[in-house]
Design a protein around this nucleic acid. Structure first.
Lengths: 213, 213
DNA sequence: CGGGATCCCTTAGGATACTG
DNA sequence: CAGTATCCTAAGGGATCCCG
């Protein structure tokens, strides 16, 4: 009835029984950004077979992690309170994975939802709290995100919008966020292209979002 | 070469490729407590087939999460720096799973290592920082742990030792840690049996370690 | 068109036995 | 003790099809 279990009585084992199956935490990741429909989830997880997506949604629902909400004609999946409580764990995993990330291969995609969670994983509230409110528009490949930092609060939304700095970033933005590449150099070498606003704010961006703790 | 991948470029997907395979995070969990030999890992994960354990150890080594250290005749597995960086993620998952834990079934075991991580998941450093140093000896079933809290620091070791309070706890200690059951009632109902020391300290224990944050 | 279900094949996982 | 080897089952993957 529960997913196949580990025969252990403990927190980690229980978590893995509920959300440890393949693809499950990626579904949770996308739902942490907001409620999504089946087809949106499928689009954000291009390689998931549709039967697996359906199976995982059912299992996660039975485990109390998410619920199906019928909205007139369409069905929307959203996290329950229990499911939202996974956020710290998902962000911690995200932060660890970001540090272990190499260069993107060309068979890999970065979706809006995954980028959003990546930003939240790399966000440093304690640092941001000491900085003035700032809005960025960031374009990664074809997806554009509107990022607003107000004190220790972060909001990320799809699409552009009013901002203090708009930039387009290539994959090497990793080196900017890891501190290997100075912001001025990132601009000079074309890793980051300033589209609008004050390029100096890229320094603030790079201290607000950072890999490795 | 890497584990089968998700076709996504992002922190969470990368983490899951490295430590998302079945059993992998339970191995990491036990190694977070300390270096372990193959047979110790096998004993702590009673249901893992030995070929799977061997496969996981190899994959985790290739992923840079752990290393094999030959010690004269025996081989010891220990986490690398990268592997130890998984601690926040494992503890976050542990805390979430603890909150989702029901009563133990009799086909489930609780090992010393899993109990140790559970305690670390439930530990509240901010609360502990305001309390005097305290040492506990806790017996869960047949395993005994020596727990020392000094300010915001926690140490958990196998076995007993000098302590301010020694107690034996049944599975229902869950309700104590979740706040459903008052410490006095836990003692009165036999959920917790005080073996030595001041039973009043159980209240301190229950505020130092707590489910749900 | 959204939300799946079915089919078939490949691969990983599980149980057990065995070896340097 | 620290793993391989083998065999079998069950889960994942990919394509296609279906139904309201």
């Amino acid at each position: 009835m529960a997913a196949r279990d580990y025969g252990q009585y403990g927190g980690v084992a229980r978590s893995l029984e509920l959300v440890g199956e393949r693809w499950a935490l990626l579904i949770v990741r996308d739902l942490l950004v907001g409620p999504r429909r089946y087809s949106e989830l499928a689009a954000g997880l291009p390689r998931i077979p549709s039967n697996i997506l359906a199976t995982r949604l059912r299992e996660l629902q039975e485990g109390g992690v998410l619920r199906r909400v019928p909205h007139s004609r369409v069905i929307v999946y959203e996290l329950t309170e229990v499911g939202r409580a996974l956020e710290p764990a998902v962000l911690a995993l995200g932060a660890w994975g970001l540090a272990a990330l190499g260069a993107p291969r060309d068979d890999q995609v970065a979706t809006a939802d995954s980028l959003t969670i990546d930003l939240r994983s790399a966000f440093r509230p304690a640092v941001a709290a000491g900085l003035p409110p700032t809005a960025y528009t960031a374009r990664f490949g074809t997806t554009e995100l509107h990022i607003r930092v107000r004190g220790a609060a972060l909001e990320v939304e799809r699409g552009g919008g009013e901002c203090d700095l708009a930039f387009a970033a290539g994959p090497d933005i990793r080196s900017l966020l890891s501190g290997e590449l100075a912001p001025e150099l990132a601009i000079a070498t074309g890793v980051v292209e300033v589209l609008r606003g004050r390029g100096r704010l890229l320094t603030r961006f790079a201290t607000t979002f950072r890999l490795v703790a």
